[in-house]
Nucleic acid binder design. Structure first.
Lengths: 209, 209, 209, 209
DNA sequence: CATGAATGAGGGTTCATTCAT
DNA sequence: AATGAATGAACCCTCATTCAT
């Protein structure tokens, strides 16, 4: 009768739901207090479940943070992917507009939930493997941006001599920077000015013509 | 004879020296194993002192990491300040060359001691206050870069319509990005390409003329 | 039709059957991993039943081990009893042969299922009450052996001056020793030599005539 | 000034003393409540030390029981070794007397401190490795007894056709049996009768001449 | 009646911090 | 002043047991 059973029984759905809730609670705890300051008991208490219950859903503390981070990355990638259509435009004007849309989408993710960047930073300090994942996350965005650049070069509205990969990394660096700035001053004004400045640098550079 | 030690007794000098050594040892430990994985005993052992002695020089674990980070920031600021002469040049050509020098200097700091960025990341995860300090560190570089931009605008070789502050932040974002990339692939080739790409974007943008 | 199931409904028979299966599964688990290392879940998993079901048949973990041990003791006693016919023989020759048969029967019980002695040892470590039961088990064998001795004395082929009870205990001690030796080296050769040595000591002693 | 400094400083002596005390306290706890029922906190509480202190002296719970057992075995071996002089006698009479002395010495060890056999049994149930050690302990006594037998055969007062090793094991089995009996009824009368019965069986066997 | 999700007491272990020597 | 032995709060994790479905 239920519309989207997806082949899962009621218990299985309930179980998946609890997993989700634990991930969300853990997300909040880790973001608010940091990984090390968060006890399994804190996560359980936030949900009103016994802390033993936690271990029915996740193997250990490391396991949950892994899932929280994976989940977070998935959300970011989904948000980026939603706007991802490198070959949708064919003029510089249209491209600039697209850039602005993508930037806004990203800004929204992080501004909407300020715990996100906090968690990312907190996670990077957990251990070597986690730091590596965070760096990977940053590098994962390189091909996304690179695809836009490649398309632009092919279409002829971007410079033919671009060294695509490092250029993409530079652009993503600017976005990362705006994220950090946004953590201290999340005002829309600041974000708007930053966003405009990034586009100005990105498309025209700072040299006087 | 040295200015700083003037007026300090021999004991006081010895004490300052030990503090220095503890900070250095802690720096190494924190960078190598991370803040939480490092025990006071590890720091003391590295110096060959009793771990009780540590507490005669620093109030607690939080205290030492504070000093380690302050020390690290000082070193970075010093390195940046050494090359800091926004008004030394008056043509775009000279400015580009200066940018390259500054970039190289910065790259050297972090490449020379790869534990530095690791420590910064590790530190950002300690607690809210520490994360704030890390963000502050990033913002601290804004006026430095902004000074160059201002000078360039005044001299006429940079665009007159630059929104100085966010533009400086964007440029610093690119530098930060190159740092992260450098943590995974510290090869000089990669750094050189990135450095070149940053300058290309920065001065000319990516639009086809 | 069978005597034991007479008067039991089908459900009751099924219930008894499940109890039997749980005891057997528990026996295997306890013997293989030891009492403390065995979880209720292990026992249930081995049977493919839910571990909640376990508690419908036994009150708790202590309860099941009690039953496992009782069951084990019953099997040992049955095996001993089967060969038990102290008054079947009337000459030393026949008695020696009978001893050998009994020894073989016992050896077979333990060699057949090497988990038995392991379980007995494991059980003895559970708590005071269990240790007591294990000691009782050993003492329970005293009258069995004593019966043979008494008969032999009465028949005249054993020494008249035997202090029956402690003598029986001594003989049983030799059997216990052979059991322990058999746990580390269960080879038939070793068992055969031990068995022969026990009989040699037992009947003739070690003194040169 | 102190007579037996043995090259140890005062702190080192104090440390060794504390180790001793912990081993003793653990011995008592393990023997009284069993290994699993004993918490590190119990051991520490018995000594009036913090339970964290325990870990300055022993790596973990397994480590302490290892030391307790080793210590116990050492004491047993020392007691056996003290009376160990297989070639001190040359007649059956003297040998019987020696056997009685050894038996008494052994009985005294275990009667004196009834926790000893309890601990041995408890230990055997800890895990496979421990059970193995307990079996080894029993086998360790084989060569001791075997040495006496060999000497007796060589001197001519024991039967020439003894299969030394299994015979030694049989004799040790009788001793083990008397130990178990002694755990339930430690009265000297019982021990005396058992001891006499063992010697009677051992030297003369039970056959009527 | 069977199930297994939920529970929380309990225990081992770590380590920052204190303080007597 | 230096030391390191002692401490116990804190935390992760297990598993026997309960009970709603």
């Amino acid at each position: 009768m239920t519309a989207v059973t997806d082949g899962l029984s009621r218990v299985e759905r309930r179980k998946a739901e609890t997993r989700r809730e634990i991930i969300d609670a853990a997300f909040t705890c880790f973001a608010e207090q940091g990984y090390h300051a968060t006890g399994i008991a804190d996560i359980a208490a936030r949900l009103g479940i016994g802390h033993g219950t936690f271990y029915r859903y996740f193997a250990n503390k490391r396991d949950i943070v892994e899932h929280v981070i994976t989940d977070l990355i998935d959300r970011i990638v989904a948000a980026l992917g939603a706007e991802n259509a490198p070959d949708a435009v064919s003029t510089l004007e249209a491209y600039r507009a697209q850039t602005e849309r993508i930037g806004n989408a990203l800004a929204q993710i992080f501004t909407e939930d300020p715990r996100m960047p906090q968690l990312l930073i907190s996670a990077a300090g957990i251990d070597d493997a986690m730091r590596e994942r965070m760096l990977e996350l940053f590098e994962m965005t390189t091909p996304l941006t690179a695809a836009y650049l490649e398309h632009g070069v092919r279409e002829g509205y971007l410079r033919a001599d671009l060294d695509i990969e490092p250029t993409a990394q530079s652009i993503n660096g600017m976005i990362l920077g705006s994220l950090l700035v946004g953590m201290r001053d999340p005002s829309p004004q600041r974000q708007a000015r930053l966003s405009a400045a990034i586009r100005a640098v990105m498309y025209d550079g700072i040299s006087r013509r």
